[in-house]
Amino acid sequence: MSKEKIVINPEFWDIIPQDYRDLVDHATYGKTDRGWKDVGSSTELIAEHSLCAGCPESIAFRHIMASIPAPEDTVMVGSTGCTSLVFPMVAVQNIHSLFGNQNAIATGLKRALAYRFPNQTKDVIVLAGDGATVDIGLDMTLQSWFRQEKFTTICFDNELYANTGGQESGLMQKGFVAKMAPQGKKFEKVRLPEIARESGCAYVAVLTTSKPSLVERVVKQAVLIAREIGPTYLQIYTPCILEIGKQSMEGLQEMRDSESAGERFKFREFITPEAQAFIDDMNAKKKADKLAASANN
């Protein structure tokens, strides 16, 4: 399965918008080793959207869309928040859920896809903000992990409700003062990665989007482990530059500062022995294939 799904009837080609033609001609659907290195020389699966200039959510979206292993056989589930301004401009099938319901929708979707397409692999990826994942949707998030639902949950953690002007979220840091949370947060940032591990996620990673190669590695692992083993969770710091008072070009430095030793987004990952064995096996096979290919040349 590859680009066949998006190819246009030749008779309609001349009335198809250029952006769509670019996707047909230059997007990386069906490319097995697709990754962030394709960007710049291929058409990305995300187009002009209305996020603020310089928004790190936008950078993270680009890195993720370049990394998902099989976009043509993936359905993404979004939720309300700044990310929902991007989904209409994403060239992967996606569903907008009611705020907080994303992991419940993804559960039904993943099961229905397995039932409808028993001989095909279909990936489901939830991508939602911290408010959707940790506050309003926490019940659905946790229950899907307890039930070992086989899909990936990605949280764009900007540590507040950005889309509605800066209210407190469970992932906000203790003491942080936001426009709509003037007294400062009284509780610690919820330790969702650790909760995810204890709730049965086979793979969990915490990172920022400052290194596209790292985003690519964790996204691929998360999706492939979810396919074979069980739920996976990624928490990516995508600072809301608008609400924390940064300039449009300061988002990258903010992410780099937050991932130094001892800081809250220092890269960390948890993986179960079963998931690790699966990844080791996959890497060994890839290595063997490469060796065989170079021996044949």
Binding site: G40, S41, G54, P56, S58, I59, F61, S248, M249
Partner: peptide, 28 residues
């Protein structure tokens, strides 16, 4: 660049170029 398909490679000249209509002027 936060915007997609905004800075692209000119594969012949081997230089990067900006698709101005997609640039939001963030300066990153």
């Amino acid at each position: 660049c936060p915007e997609a398909n905004c800075i692209m490679m000119n594969d012949e000249k081997k230089v990067a170029f900006v698709v101005e209509s997609r640039c939001k002027g963030c300066e990153l």
